[in-house]
Design a protein around this nucleic acid. Structure first.
Lengths: 353, 353
DNA sequence: CGCCGCACGTTATACGTAACACTACTGCCC
DNA sequence: GGGCAGTAGTGTTACGTATAACGTGCGGCG
């Protein structure tokens, strides 16, 4: 419990405090406004004497000077602001992407503004109007397809996340090696003896999900007795719940493993399995993808693939900074990590037909 | 799969497009720049003829004119930007608060910039520098205590979330009626016969958590045989895991119910219970708080209190708008909802000593 | 001696917008 | 006919910053 030391007679209101400008600092330090700008911009070497420079800094500190960023942006033509376009922020994955991006941005003295695409925030608005300042660049997840269309025509650097590296509209791309993750999940399941695998595939038209299907197909190509099916699933616990029900009660032999495009889906699938009287992992193996906090909260803990979300955001921002500085950004592909936990087990003997 | 209709010969790069200004529009429409400003600012009634107004709008559309927000902010002294200070964004709760705030802000043509306090983004920076533009107001969660200190001195409207309504430093406060939620959880548990209840209390020094403890104490005051203990817990699955272990293996009779300050903690507690051979809810009842997606993913689903996070963000932004328009904002307290699911059950007969 | 850098500054300008102050014309009533 | 209100505009300025352009002494060098 903190003490309230200040009496604070009136609550802070709308009263616009007369902002202290660089001219005020100049007056206080006895120099010109230009000198203040030079000193505080650290461009004073050989232009202002060390003594005066110090007194400028002292005056600025004294008065609590804070440069007006609107004026600076106007003058410079640069806003030091990037837009991050995400499909919806209520997911842990994108919250982590934001965190990584914001960290790197702060190192470059940049800010990050979010544009959660329409489903999160209402009818489609102009993403550039929603950002309050003009923007220096855009980082966008491929999953925010609708908002993306508006970006295409702009003359801004556009870094695409989780997106086709050959996309000609992107200045740079940052990808997770999802294909490798899925291959390793598939190998893990095959190694446990699973052959009848149903893919609970995200019902989202985005590159990163297409890759998952392709990688799974590729991984099972050389296995003659493998029998893979696909069931579309909405990206939520309920989505997994329904998709798993369809997969487990449909015609034909029951799959012994469910490979889910997302941890949420996997959690839902586990619930359905239990309701149908199937034990996970003894009767049915389930794998997730993302390694959300949730994957360790459910019982059993999910075998999944850890996606380094913060690194995705960080790499995206690095790529954007490179583009802004004229360095050609290289496409990035980040490694993922297979995390084996309790939701997968050898195929039950009874199912080995 | 979308077709790539545009040939797009060169990738968009750093090439700064010569932005089209209001003067360009004026030239194209054959009027003065001032007229353009009037028309596009919708202040032209009786000052510009309807005919010319229309041709200005046409020219703006034609040229793809987008006003320079930096210039506008500089001129107006207002940035139409609010800062949202949150303790960490990787949590679903604050992602939802942001979404609600951003929705309301958009209605007022405002933007929202996030300041995740230091633990999320590195060493403590100046929150106002991190926001790229000057700010018109601040909305802050009481949980971001460290960042908050910096706000106190500023002359900006400050809306506090989940915070003491009597805080003299706040322009307005928005609260959830957490006390009511906890009272209802307590009543629910008492109704099921529970008397030995351990409170897994968040180890965070914030008003919203103090309220929980106080409300629980109050609810049990009139119950003579009630026996409540408290165990501090970090706000995570692991935190709940450890705290529950301490609570269930400590000296004295084992509690029959755990009241947890957060769904994550509750999920962890359930795991510990299961590891100790206790069934939830038959042998032990567990309640959460938040109603995260996670609370429906675990087995059994958590009895919890639904916190309307988006409404908190929305109400916070409404209060800020009111303050900026000179209307005195009233303190807000939002109702919460008890959600009874599978993690609570009548106290087992054996435990009824 | 004259003139070139060099260190140390200042003056002036432009960024794009909003809005104040002003002009000019047209009815129209007293 | 003079003033007055209303309509339809334009010219100009200021917001606060960064920087190009412009002095001004002064020591040194040809």
């Amino acid at each position: 419990m903190t003490a309230h030391e200040q009496p604070s007679p009136a609550r802070p209101g709308t009263a616009a405090a007369p902002r202290v400008t660089s001219r005020d600092v100049a007056r206080a330090a006895g120099v010109s406004q230009a000198a203040v700008s030079l000193v505080l911009g650290d461009k004073w070497r050989g232009r202002v004497s060390p003594h005066k420079a110090e007194s400028v800094r002292a005056a600025a500190r004294e008065l609590g000077y804070r440069p007006n960023l609107a004026a600076r942006s106007l003058r410079m033509g640069r806003t030091r602001t990037a837009l991050l376009v995400v499909p919806a922020l209520t997911t842990e994955y994108f919250a982590r992407v934001y965190t990584g991006a914001a960290r790197v941005a702060a190192d470059h003295d940049f800010g990050v503004v979010l544009y959660p695409s329409p489903e999160g925030i209402g009818p489609a608005r102009d993403p550039f109007a929603s950002a309050r300042a003009a923007l220096d660049g855009v980082i966008a997840s491929s999953m925010a397809a609708d908002a993306l269309a508006a970006m295409r025509g702009e003359e801004l650097p556009l870094v695409m996340l989780d997106s086709d590296p050959d996309d000609p509209g992107a200045t740079a791309t940052v990808n997770l090696d999802i294909a490798d993750g899925v291959r390793r999940l598939a190998a893990h399941l095959l190694g446990l003896g699973h052959r009848r695998i149903t893919h609970l595939a995200a019902a989202v038209d985005s590159w990163t999900f297409h890759v998952r299907s392709a990688a799974l197909a590729e991984a099972l190509r050389g296995v003659p007795d493998a029998e893979v099916r696909t069931e579309p699933a909405a990206l939520s616990v309920d989505g997994g719940l329904h998709a798993a029900h369809a997969a487990l009660t449909g015609p034909g032999p029951r799959p012994t493993a469910l490979l889910c495009d997302d941890d949420l889906v996997a959690a839902g699938a586990c619930k359905t399995a239990r309701r149908l009287g199937l034990r996970v992992p003894e009767d049915l193996s389930v794998t997730g993808l993302d390694d959300l906090a949730l994957s360790r909260a459910v019982e059993p803990e999910l075998t999944t693939v850890r996606l380094p979300a913060e690194e995705v955001g960080a790499a995206g921002m690095h790529a954007l900074m490179a583009a802004l500085e004229g360095r050609p950004p290289a496409p990035v592909s980040l490694p993922v990590e297979l995390v084996v936990r309790g939701s997968t087990a050898p195929v039950p003997p009874a199912a080995q037909v």
